[in-house]
Amino acid sequence: MTETLKVTLEKRAGLAVIYTEGYINNQGGEEIARVAYEQIDAGEKALVLNLQGTKIVNSIGISILIEIIEKMLEIDGTLSFCCLTPTIEKTFHIMGLSQYAKIFPDEASAITELTA
């Protein structure tokens, strides 16, 4: 019984959107980080993590997302989130992630603000 996270990427003008589908646990977080670090290495400074396909996360997975936030802060970049379930958004607020990563209700509003 292993839940596998599917991660896909779409490049947009001025940013990259990472889509997830499934449970963000340790392995899922590492897969997101792998894709994110490839984009950072390629010079991308704005990443959006679209979690529409993710209904559950655990704190080990989120701790890997914190590593990505740290990396983005180091390069004066931003990691933003969109399309969170109310519970995932509440969890991010409990943890304080929203102080360091913007949370948008949908992808369109994220792109509008980040590419303005």
């Binding site: 704190s59 080990i60 701790s63 914190i66 740290e70 360091y100």
Partner: peptide
């Protein structure tokens, strides 16, 4: 755990 400390810490875990 406090996010501002975890961002600088080697271990980001301990949120459960």
């Amino acid at each position: 755990p406090r996010i501002e400390e975890k961002l600088r810490a080697k271990s980001k875990r301990g949120w459960g």
